[in-house]
Design a protein around this nucleic acid. Structure first.
Length: 278
DNA sequence: GTACTTGTTGAACG
DNA sequence: TCGTTCAACAAGTA
């Protein structure tokens, strides 16, 4: 499922491929994918605009248009954005293809979503900071200003919260989901049920460093395809083979050989090693 | 048929 | 107020 590294991968691939292209037509096959505007209005505003820039905030993909609006896309669990470079191919089009953006050069962008949880909405580009404020997004973990000191003080604020669900809380840090929260805890040898306030200085430092490292490595390998995720080229993300605990319950811990346990935490499946995650 | 998966939201509970 | 749990959304897998 697209978390920070997956959305970041799609962002940079799309930036290379569709920047400065003009949208000739939009085909909306499933109206509920479009939020906050009726389909006609959405089409009217989008058609004829040029792609100015592609950005990311948390798990949101932002496509800035030349008319002062931005497409704000959330892929949720099973969303895909796939670029088809040639006009006469229907690459990875399926019954889950809900929106198609046609460019004037004949290429197109597919928005697929098997479970229909995701959405696209039109927001005035100048209102984006307001939107992020409303969403109360926490800091971007790979930003320069997300320092160890910052992480420490944020953890202190949330001292009674359990660490793994806290990492997934978008208002705490932005972009981490169930996969990378589990991986970060495993890598830092921290049991997911520990409270933020109970972490020692060394554990906080380890968690901070591992988290950033995992995210960077995952971006390098174009994300993790654990479900239906593919990148903008329709290819699977290569980081899956580096995942150490996610969905590995019952299997041997890759660090100490103990049996990986699975529990439910804040309603989410959570795997960890009962022996080496303290 | 049943349980389970997941990101986010919103409600309910202690 | 705060943190946690659960239901809801949907559709596929085991």
């Amino acid at each position: 499922m697209p978390e920070l590294p997956e959305v970041e991968t799609i962002k940079s691939q799309l930036a290379q491929r569709i920047k400065s292209k003009t949208i000739k037509k939009v085909e909306i096959k499933l109206a509920k994918m479009v939020r906050g505007a009726n389909v006609k209005d959405f089409e009217k505003k989008v058609v004829g605009t040029k792609i100015k820039d592609i950005k990311r905030r948390a798990k949101l993909l932002l496509i800035e248009l030349s008319n002062g609006y931005s497409l704000v896309i959330h892929l949720k669990l099973t969303g895909q954005l796939i670029y088809n470079p040639i006009s006469n191919i229907q690459y990875l089009t399926s019954k889950y293809t809900h929106i198609i953006y046609y460019f004037t050069d004949g290429s197109k962008l597919l928005h697929n979503d098997m479970r229909q949880f995701g959405y696209v909405k039109l927001v005035k580009t100048k209102d984006l900071p307001k939107l992020f404020k409303e969403e109360k997004f926490g800091p971007e973990p790979l930003d320069k200003d997300f320092t160890l000191e910052k992480f420490k003080s944020l953890l202190k604020e949330k001292g009674r919260a359990k660490i793994k669900p806290l990492l997934m809380n978008q208002t705490f840090v932005a972009g981490i989901g169930n996969v990378y929260a589990q991986e970060a805890c495993f890598n830092a040898k921290i049991k997911p049920t520990r409270t933020a306030g109970s972490l020692t200085n060394k554990e906080v430092k380890d968690l901070y460093e591992r988290l950033k490292k995992i995210l960077r490595e995952a971006i390098k390998h174009k994300g993790s395809s654990v479900d239906t995720y593919v990148d903008a080229e329709g290819k699977q993300g290569g980081y899956v083979s580096f995942l150490k605990v996610y969905r590995r319950e019952g299997k041997k811990c890759l660090r100490c050989g103990a049996k990986i346990k699975s529990i439910r935490l804040a309603g989410r499946g959570t795997c960890f090693c009962p022996k080496c995650q303290i």
